[in-house]
Design a protein around this nucleic acid. Structure first.
Length: 898
RNA sequence: GCCGAGGUGGCGAAAUGGUAUACGCACUAGUCUUAGGAACUAGCGUCGAAAGACAUGCGAGUUCGAGUCUCGCCCUCGGCACCA
């Protein structure tokens, strides 16, 4: 053993040993009775380099994997590559490189980085999204879904990012900005393939109950908001002109011969307060009658439609706008004739694209009515105001009353509660044929077509004779050609590769053309974690029997930014696979941990509307007393804006993990990133702190070095109570066992910062023992040996290389922890218990003194001791003791008066 | 605007309703050393000579006792954004 800690040497040695022995390779078959544990982290996109966010994610995952391994689980801990996607294609467009070569090279770099970090992966299980062996099964699933009617094609307006030249899903275009480049999204008409996620909406929502205990509440909340189930009713309003001709409107297949407009409402109980029916500008009724409208109306509709295709700027609230079309609708409950408006606040994509406007009880309708001076009629009353409302028309509402209440001015329904009225009125509508109870969702089907080269080809063939024909299973994979002309324009580059496009129809064997769009890359990440279980299967995505052993995933760890998209798709995919008979459960991830971002300071100039980042080295920064930035000036002397943003190379605030490993070692970097903050917090990277990590490892190293010989020769069985047990050794053993308990509890609670602190305390306690190897008694040596062995073993999840080396030294056996099958230490409740507890004495709730007592001392005895304490007496003498509260083993509070 | 999370030393942070500030960083003084950006020792919330007082965003409340529970504000961060 070297006297000094040389991280690089230790890390290389153990990485080699692990690789040689296949230390982290796991099997489902033939293994013992150990329980399985599937530890999964979100797979990286191979962009070229790891960033500190990856280091945080994979360090946490590895800590968990090691902990479970040492706890006797058969652990599977895999990694793979989300290697299809835009950056590879961008590189091809901009720099003429081959996306495949670019991707493979990046993977090599990043794999090397992960190996230098020493993450304990079973490397044999790697999956690569861009390799035919993997994407073959993206296509396999596509065909299976096509068979089941879960994959279909339709003409649609897609979100289009003109910067990335790509189609985006609604999720990816959330907020009107491209999720990848942040540029505004526009609309474009295209034929697109969809997966029918909506076939599973209720399950996606209801099965959350199964994972409620293992997932962060905010993630579930965001998913259910995203799915957006809302229960209400459809109500059909008959529509006519201001004259008496009914307009014909072809809705939902067009069997309706009468002109009706179906609205969706969650508040059918407010229908007597409707003052108008408001339609989206894109509504079919508007479309059907577009030629009949006056010029004013037509131009307003055209204007609103044009506005709707513009990207939304969420900073600015859009002003309500609309116009009375001249059409009239009949309220089926009251028979009242209402104007039909077009309103810019009604969205065609949600519900039916039509609403009944009830200004008294809806904020948007209220605002709309105020602006256009439409009547506002209150039909819901607070229960205690009911009587008053029966006798007067309440026109003077200052704010809409959106809460439930009691119906007023609603004929037959007066006096009913909102809850009852909702049910009864929906039933009434059914009975009279003008409506029904209904549930609508915000979630829509998943558009998977991308006009891209670097993705999995959609296995569909277009034949002039047979139409749309799926490729045969035996012809999979539909291989991507080596390369394609990358123009960076909207059409898929595959369309310009004749040998790809031109093919033979699987049905009639006549000439046919292939679909040239590729699949969204979220397809790959929806099922990769099943592929790990059986990574080389050539026939099926995976063998259901093998997957049945490993899945569901026991612990998933990844960025909180995937809370909605990836995690909903993966859940959808699992349910789809269940229905294909591949798996038997509903939910793929039993427990989910979302880590916070690693962020750093950025400096930029956004005068041009786009942020131009400056490297921190080129920026002169001024700070206040608290270290907060007060100003920043660039190289050219111009003032810069500053912020704290997610670390990345392009923003100039990235820290290179390789550099960290080179300077401090992988173990120190990993230990520190776990210690610095709770895993779910955002972490502002601070370089200075990592030295504390190294110092700690050095300290432990020196302690083992110092004691190695003495404890190697020490007695291995503890001295029994009393005889020869020194107080120092007793105290150290106590600390050791308390620490084991703390660390174990922390891991079970998925806390990674507090156990590191506990280990530091234990190391400090070893340093404080007060004896050295020359004068230590047998009892001391036993305690030190136990403390150091436990410390080193518990350090393994954070600093595995150092732990292996130190453990090998302690047990004097070169094989170390894994090879010897060492286990996580177990604590003894009895040893963890203190001999003597310091019990605070409070007088009127204020701390005044402390007394020492044996654990579990009787209340009366503790009271007696407290009153015997001189310091306590100072505060109690001459005063009336009103009450004494004794909390066993914790505290005494004496309440006095006067 | 709505929903959610959170405000504790100079900083990252810790605390089953029971000794607030563990652990680390930074800082200060000292020891050792040719040297120290190493190691070790001591100190480190504020005020105060001390006793002690005051301190967990602000204000109330419950309790013998509140960082923790309740109510009302303020601020920060995140999500959603006309979802009928």
């Amino acid at each position: 053993m070297d006297e000094k800690y040389f991280p690089k040497k230790v890390e290389q040695k153990w990485q080699q040993k692990w690789a040689d022995s296949g230390a982290f390779e796991c099997e489902a078959e033939g293994c013992d009775d150990r329980p399985k544990f599937y530890q999964l982290e979100m797979l990286p996109y191979p962009s070229g380099n790891l960033h500190m966010g990856h280091v945080r994610n994979y360090s946490a995952g590895d800590a968990m994997a090691w902990y479970k391994r040492l706890k006797g689980f058969n652990v599977m801990h895999p990694i793979g590559w989300d290697s299809f996607g835009q950056p590879a294609e961008d590189a091809a467009v901009k720099r003429g490189v081959n996306p495949r070569e670019w991707t493979e090279a990046n993977i090599d770099v990043m794999r090397g980085q992960l190996q230098r970090l020493g993450i304990s992966y079973d490397w044999r299980r790697q999956m690569y999204a861009h390799r035919p062996e993997y994407y073959k099964f993206d296509q396999w699933f596509f065909l299976k879904m096509y068979e089941k009617g879960l994959a279909y094609k339709r003409l649609t307006q897609v979100n289009w990012c003109s910067h990335d030249q790509a189609t985006l899903s609604n999720e990816q275009a959330s907020g009107g900005l491209c999720w990848r480049c942040g540029n505004p999204v526009t609309k474009k008409d295209l034929e697109q393939w969809f997966f029918k996620t909506t076939a599973y909406t209720d399950q996606l929502l209801d099965d959350m109950a199964e994972i409620e205990s293992g997932w962060p509440a905010n993630v579930l909340k965001r998913q259910s908001d995203w799915i957006g189930r809302s229960e209400g009713a459809f109500v059909d309003f008959e529509v006519k002109t201001s004259g008496d001709t009914l307009f014909y409107c072809d809705l939902d297949g067009g069997t309706a011969e009468s002109g009706t407009v179906r609205v969706f409402t969650t508040r059918i109980d407010t229908i007597y307060g409707a003052n108008a029916v408001v339609l989206a500008a894109e509504h079919p009724v508007i479309q059907a009658n577009i030629d009949h409208f006056s010029e004013d109306v037509a131009s307003k509709i055209a204007f609103i439609r044009a506005e709707n295709t513009k990207p939304t700027d969420h900073e600015v609230e859009i002003e309500k706008d609309g116009i009375d079309t001249g059409l009239r609708a009949i309220n089926p409950f009251s028979g009242e004739e209402l104007p039909v408006w077009v309103g810019n606040y009604v969205m065609m994509e949600y519900g039916t694209g039509a609403v009944m406007s009830v200004p008294a009880h809806d904020e948007r309708d209220f605002e709309f009515a105020k602006k256009f001076e439409l009547p506002i009629r209150q039909v819901i009353s607070e229960p205690h105001m009911e009587h008053a409302h029966h006798t007067m028309q309440a026109m003077a509402l200052e704010v809409p009353l959106t809460a439930y209440g009691v119906l007023v001015h609603s004929d037959y329904w007066n006096g009913k509660t909102s809850e009852n009225a909702k049910q009864e009125m929906a039933a009434y509508a059914v009975k009279h044929g003008f409506g029904e109870a209904a549930t609508t969702y915000r979630l829509r089907d998943w558009g998977v077509s991308r006009q891209r080269f670097w993705g999995s080809p959609i296995p569909i063939i277009y034949c002039d004779t047979c139409g749309v024909v799926p490729e045969k299973f035996e012809n999979l994979p539909v291989r991507l050609p080596e390369t394609a002309p990358f123009s960076g324009t909207g059409e898929s580059p595959l369309a310009k590769v004749p040998e790809f496009v031109n093919t033979i129809c699987p049905t009639c064997e006549g000439p046919a053309k292939r679909e040239t769009d590729t699949m969204d890359t979220f397809v790959d990440s929806s099922w990769y974690y099943f592929r790990y279980t059986d990574a080389t299967n050539e026939v099926l995505p995976f063998d259901p029997e093998i997957a049945a052993y490993w899945t569901p995933v026991d612990q998933y760890i990844g960025g909180d930014d995937h809370a909605v998209m990836h995690l909903i798709y993966a859940r959808f995919w699992t349910k789809m696979m269940r229905d294909l008979g591949l798996v038997t459960f509903n939910e793929p991830f039993k427990r989910l941990l979302t880590q916070g971002m690693v962020v750093g300071e950025t400096f930029f100039d956004d005068a041009t509307g786009k942020k131009i980042y400056h490297m921190p080295g080129d920026v002169t920064v001024t700070r206040d007393g608290k270290g907060k930035i007060t100003g920043a000036v660039g190289k050219d002397g111009g003032a810069l804006k500053y912020g704290i943003e997610r670390m990345s190379k392009s923003k100039g605030n990235g820290v290179d993990p390789d550099e960290m490993v080179e300077i401090y070692g992988a173990d120190a970097a990993r230990l520190f990133i776990m210690f610095a903050a709770p895993i779910e917090n955002e972490l502002v990277w601070n370089e200075a702190g990592i030295e504390g990590g190294v110092r700690f490892l050095q300290r432990v190293w020196r302690q083992v070095y110092k004691w190695r010989t003495a404890i190697g020769e020490a007695e291995r069985t503890p001295l029994v109570n009393g005889e020869g047990v020194t107080p120092a050794s007793r105290k150290l053993r106590q600390k050791t066992h308390q620490t084991i308990k703390r660390v174990t509890d922390s891991f079970e609670a998925l806390q990674f910062n507090t156990p590191v602190a506990a280990l530091m305390e234990l190391s400090n306690a070893v340093g404080d023992i007060g004896v050295d190897p020359t004068n230590a008694t047998e009892s001391d040596l036993f305690a030190v040996r136990e403390a150091l062995t436990s410390l080193v073993l518990m350090l393994t999840p954070f600093a595995p290389h150092t732990a292996e080396e130190l453990y090998a030294v302690i047990i004097d056996n070169e094989d170390g922890i894994v090879a010897n099958g060492a286990c996580f230490p177990e604590y003894s409740e009895g040893l963890a218990k203190a001999d003597e507890i310091e019990i605070p004495v409070q007088i009127n709730g204020k701390l005044r003194s402390r007394i020492l007592a044996a654990p579990d001392t009787a209340d009366e005895e503790l009271q007696r001791m407290a009153f015997a304490d001189a310091k306590t007496r100072e505060f109690t003498d001459g005063k009336e003791v009103v009450k004494v509260i004794v909390v066993p083993n914790r505290l005494i509070n004496i309440v006095v008066k006067g």
